[in-house]
Amino acid sequence: MKFHLDEKIWLIASFGVIIGMMLFTGYQTFVLGMGPPSGMETIDPQKVDVTAPFDEPGVYEIGENEYEVVMTLQLFSFTPNNIEIPAGSTVHFTMTSKDVTHGIQVAGTNINAMVMPGHIQRITQKFDETGEYLVLCNEYCGTGHQFMATTITVK
């Protein structure tokens, strides 16, 4: 195959874009620790209520300005709901689903993760700005899907 010069340039540039995206993604994931949520722990989806820590979902202070939210997602609600935390705190979410596949998304933040039955999902976010954040389920889960939402209030 014979390549023209401009074709060569284009192909190298294309390849460069792809490799560039790769390197940047890798740098963010492995050096900055910004990888996508990938909780590896598993749980019996039918026994969530009796398995620690999900037998007691809630907001726990685990350090200075550091909170853990142990959360279950179930057909059309989040437990706990209407969470309140002080501004500037880092929140670690530990979540699982009691029934079907859900998704958690907090508008205005980078929180976006699939929460699936049998798997424990983790995601961490620092809330600096005060306000009320909308938390919603972004994976279709049934008739009441559009009502599956709650809020995080940062004070």
Binding site: T29, F30, P37, S38, G39, M40, M114, H119
Partner: peptide, 9 residues
């Protein structure tokens, strides 16, 4: 499935 649990980073 990038933000799924159960697949390693």
């Amino acid at each position: 499935q990038i933000i799924d649990p159960g697949i390693h980073e």
